[in-house]
């Protein structure tokens, strides 16, 4: 049999990759148009950008304005102030005759004489790495398992879903505490462990149920009739349709990972040089936690940062949900 159709003029069209790039851009634009209409998402995005700027600014400040001996987040110490922790230098101190107005320590110093703002900014980067790292692991695992379990069904599905049930039931924080007390836990380990736990647990169940609705679509059958094998169908048809949802759950995983870091650091179970959780832990270890009204600058900045960054990713996730789920959109 021959092709009965005539070849036509395709040479006028730009090459494939160029068209695809344009399409991706167009797709992004239409998604962005929906996203930006939602104030929730914009607030979240602004917060994330703000923290990203904090993280980026720290090395620049250290190289220019801040003297390393004073401002190093881990080894720094300010000899010009006699008593540490000291409150922010721009707040008047009536009972301290030495006080004069300055922006030397915008958020004060901690019990070990280190600048709180510097600590806060320095930690931001690792919080990001932790959150995004954990989220990537989660999404990779959850999407693959969800797609495979939904596509094959039967025994494969049953095994993965029972694993998911077990992991889902585990008390996360308690488990992490036990694990970190048994092993030397660094940030990367936490990201991995958290990512794996989240990936095998709840996220898989959600993604699998979505995969089930895609699996019965006629285009899957069409691909099978074309001669496509299982791998082809899973990776060219199932997974791309799951990615928007996966991306959404990625945002929620970031929140969870950052939160669990704070908890573990607070208990001093994480082998880490500086983090937001560790900042609170330092204050707690020196006995200032019971006097928060006076020593607010030890707890507040990191506490607020944890809350805001967690919220930011969650808000972006909620707004993305509207992009991904047309049913949630207003007409």
């Amino acid at each position: 049999m021959n092709m009965t159709v005539q070849t036509s003029s395709v040479d006028t069209a730009p090459p494939l990759w160029q068209m695809r790039l344009k399409l991706a851009l167009k797709n992004f634009k239409s998604g962005w148009a929906i996203f930006k209409e939602n104030p929730i998402g914009i607030i979240g995005l602004v917060l994330i950008v703000f923290f990203a700027l904090l993280a980026a600014l720290h090395p620049i400040l250290m190289a220019t304005a801040w003297e390393p001996a004073v401002y190093d987040p881990i080894t720094g110490y300010d000899f010009e102030i006699l008593i540490h922790p000291s409150p922010p230098t721009w707040i008047p101190q009536p009972d301290n005759p030495m006080w004069e107005f300055s922006f030397r320590h915008v958020l004060g110093t901690d019990p070990l004489g280190r600048d709180v703002l510097s600590q806060l900014m320095f930690s931001t980067r690792s919080e990001f790495l932790l959150g995004v790292g954990a989220a990537l692991v989660t999404v990779l695992i959850a999407t693959t398992i969800g797609a495979v379990a939904a596509y094959y069904g039967g025994l494969v599905d049953m095994i993965f879903m029972r694993i998911a049930d077990v992991v889902y039931m585990l008390p996360f924080i308690a488990l992490l505490i036990v694990l970190s007390s048994l092993f030397d836990f660094e940030l990367i380990h936490l990201a991995l462990v958290y990512g794996v736990l989240a990936g095998f647990g709840g996220t898989t169940i959600v993604i699998k149920s979505q995969a089930l609705t895609i699996k019965v679509k006629a285009y899957i059958e069409a691909a099978r009739i074309a001669g496509g094998n299982d791998l082809h169908i899973i990776f060219t048809h199932l997974v791309p349709n799951l990615l928007p949802l996966s991306f959404l759950y990625m945002m929620f995983t970031v929140t969870g990972a950052i939160f669990s870091e704070a908890v573990l650091s607070f208990f001093g179970l994480l082998d880490i040089r500086m983090s937001w959780g560790l900042m609170i832990q330092t204050a707690q270890a020196a006995g200032y936690l019971l006097n928060s009204w006076k020593y607010w600058y030890l707890m507040f900045p990191s506490g607020v940062a944890i809350t805001l960054l967690c919220a930011a990713f969650y808000l972006v996730g909620r707004a993305l949900d509207e992009v991904v789920n047309p049913r949630l959109r207003k007409r």
Binding site: E221, A222, T236
Partner: peptide, 13 residues
Amino acid sequence: FQDPYESLNPRRT
């Protein structure tokens, strides 16, 4: 197939 809205993958050109 019957349903032209379900027989084409929405994410493929």
